[in-house]
Computed example of a mutant assay.
Amino acid sequence: MKDEYDLSKMKSRRNPYASKLKKPVTMRLGEDVIDYFKKMAEETGVPYQSLINLYLKDCVTQHRKIDISWQART
Rank of each mutant, 00 (worst) to 15 (best):
D58H: 04
V60A: 05
L29Y: 08
P24T: 05
S8H: 00
R13G: 08
G45R: 12
K38P: 01
K39P: 01
K9D: 01
T74L: 12
F37T: 04
S8I: 02
K20I: 01
R13Y: 12
K22N: 06
V46H: 01
D6L: 06
R13E: 14
L56A: 06
S8F: 03
I68W: 06
Y17V: 03
Y48K: 08
Q49F: 01
D35R: 10
A18G: 02
E4K: 13
S8Y: 01
I34D: 01
K38H: 01
K39Y: 09
G30S: 15
S69R: 13
E43H: 06
M27N: 01
C59P: 00
T44P: 04
K23P: 00
Y17D: 08
E4D: 12
E31G: 14
K2T: 05
A41C: 06
Y5K: 14
S8T: 15
K11I: 09
V46M: 02
C59V: 02
D58G: 02
R14S: 12
N53Q: 11
C59K: 01
D32Y: 03
A72C: 04
M40N: 05
G30D: 10
S50F: 05
K11S: 09
E43V: 06
T26M: 05
E42G: 10
Y17Q: 08
Q49L: 11
M1V: 08
K2N: 03
M1F: 09
T44V: 08
V46C: 02
G30W: 08
D67T: 11
Y48G: 05
M1G: 15
L54P: 00
S12V: 10
L29S: 01
I52A: 11
N53E: 09
I68R: 06
P16H: 07
K57Y: 04
M1H: 13
V33F: 12
K11D: 14
L51W: 09
D3S: 14
Q62D: 06
L54M: 12
N53C: 09
E42I: 12
G45C: 14
Y5N: 07
Y5W: 14
R14V: 08
Q71K: 15
K2I: 03
V25D: 00
L29Q: 00
I66P: 05
M10Q: 05
A18L: 04
V46T: 15
P47G: 09
S69I: 15
A18M: 02
R13V: 04
Y55M: 04
Y17K: 08
Q62L: 11
K11R: 14
T26I: 09
Q62W: 00
R28F: 08
A72M: 05
M10R: 05
K23G: 00
D67P: 02
T61I: 03
L29C: 02
D35Q: 06
W70E: 12
K20V: 01
L7Y: 11
R73H: 05
S12F: 12
G30P: 07
L54F: 09
K11F: 08
T74M: 10
S69T: 14
M40T: 09
L29P: 00
W70R: 09
